[in-house]
């Protein structure tokens, strides 16, 4: 976590069809957010493995943000519940590894959520900067 003093590094898991287009739109509209934000896009947030989250935090990311589809998920209405369970399991693993569970966050980001995404990044950056 070497750049923590300057800009906390955030790993975002987005979704190919819904939240990643929203993140693209932030760029398209030149809505700026922290350049220490890195995005991995997956088909669905309910396919994120807790081990990836733990790996990211152990290797040097300061926080992990899940840009989920929420109830808009085109795969399943169970998606928000399953993603919540992934976060719970991740937080359990984080506690075991002495990582503050506040380092993971989730919000529903849709394909037009350019400003909300930038705003979530700003808030999370602030929260992470204040931790420790």
């Amino acid at each position: 976590m070497e750049n923590k003093q300057i800009r906390p590094k955030i790993l975002v898991f987005s979704t190919d069809k819904i939240s990643d287009p929203g993140i693209d739109q932030a760029g398209l509209r030149k809505i700026h957010y922290s350049p220490a934000v890195y995005v991995i896009s997956l088909p669905c947030s309910s396919g994120i493995k807790p081990r990836w989250i733990l790996h990211a935090l152990k290797q040097g990311f300061d926080g992990v943000f899940i840009a989920a589809d929420g109830h808009e998920c085109s795969y399943s209405p169970k998606c928000p519940d399953l993603t919540n369970k992934i976060i719970e399991e991740s937080q359990r693993l984080m506690k075991e590894n002495n990582i503050n569970p506040k380092r993971i966050r989730m919000a529903a980001i849709c394909s037009v959520c350019a400003e909300p995404f930038a705003s979530h990044m700003a808030n999370f950056t602030k929260i992470l900067a204040e931790l420790e």
């Binding site: 800009r7 700026h32 350049p35």
Partner: peptide, 21 residues
């Protein structure tokens, strides 16, 4: 690798960090 929408455009205000990213 998306270095336009999720990098050069999103961080046009900070070119050095955009390059690092």
């Amino acid at each position: 690798v998306n270095i336009r929408e999720q990098c050069s455009w999103a961080h046009s205000d900070t070119p050095k960090e955009a390059t690092q990213k």
